[in-house]
Simulated assay, not measured.
Amino acid sequence: MSLFYVTAIRHSSDPAFISHILIHSPNGKGRMNKGVILSKADVINHLENGHEFKTAVFNYSTGQWNNGADIGTVRIGLTTYLRTDKDSTTKDNLGNLLLIDELR
């Protein structure tokens, strides 16, 4: 299956929940292709179909993207959360990624 990198998120009206994710595919030359914004539901669907997602953070000192944590899902009650850790808090948590709206 495919590997995608997540570089930014958009929160829903409640900051505990993510609504959209900026994803990139690697281009095979140590860089990433232009990003695409997907809904949280689309990313969860891709994860359930075997695709892999990792966070990526730009290192301004080296000018390179650093691999971050693996992204998975945690289901609590009827809600599925996107997480880089597997604790039982009821919120999405992909670390300290940029906000999509800050990139404009």
Rank of each mutant, 00 (worst) to 15 (best):
K91L: 13
S12L: 05
N66Q: 10
K54M: 07
L97T: 01
H20R: 13
G35H: 08
S12T: 11
A69N: 12
F53W: 04
G77F: 01
F58G: 02
T89E: 15
K40A: 03
R10P: 02
D101P: 01
T80K: 06
G50L: 02
P15S: 11
V74K: 04
K40Q: 04
K29Q: 15
S25Q: 12
F58L: 07
G63W: 06
N49F: 00
A16F: 04
E102L: 14
L99S: 10
I76A: 10
S39R: 05
G50D: 05
H24C: 08
T89S: 13
N66Y: 08
K34P: 03
K29V: 10
M32W: 07
T55G: 05
T84R: 08
N96P: 08
L47H: 11
Y5R: 11
N33L: 13
D70W: 01
N96A: 14
P26I: 03
N96S: 15
N93G: 05
R31S: 12
A16C: 12
T90C: 10
H46T: 03
T90D: 05
V74P: 00
L38H: 07
D87S: 09
Q64Y: 12
M1C: 07
R31E: 14
I76G: 09
K86Y: 11
L94E: 01
I9V: 15
R104Q: 15
S19K: 13
L98K: 15
T84E: 12
I71A: 03
N33K: 13
L103D: 08
R10F: 03
S2T: 12
P26A: 12
S19N: 09
I21L: 09
T55R: 06
A56L: 01
H20G: 02
G72R: 11
S25Y: 06
H20I: 05
Q64W: 10
A8Q: 05
N33T: 02
V36I: 14
E52A: 10
T80Y: 03
L82F: 02
N59F: 12
L98R: 15
N96F: 11
S2K: 15
L3C: 02
H24L: 04
F53N: 00
F58M: 04
F17K: 07
H51N: 13
A56W: 00
G63K: 10
L38R: 07
D92M: 09
D87K: 01
N49D: 09
Y60L: 08
D87E: 04
K34A: 08
F17M: 10
H20Q: 14
G63T: 14
A41M: 07
I18G: 12
G77E: 04
L103E: 07
S61E: 15
G35K: 03
V6E: 01
L103G: 06
D92Y: 05
S39Y: 01
L98Q: 14
I23Q: 06
D42T: 15
G50C: 04
N67A: 07
M32C: 06
L22N: 08
N45V: 00
V74L: 03
T90E: 14
H11A: 13
V43W: 05
T7C: 11
I76R: 07
V74F: 00
R75Y: 00
I23L: 12
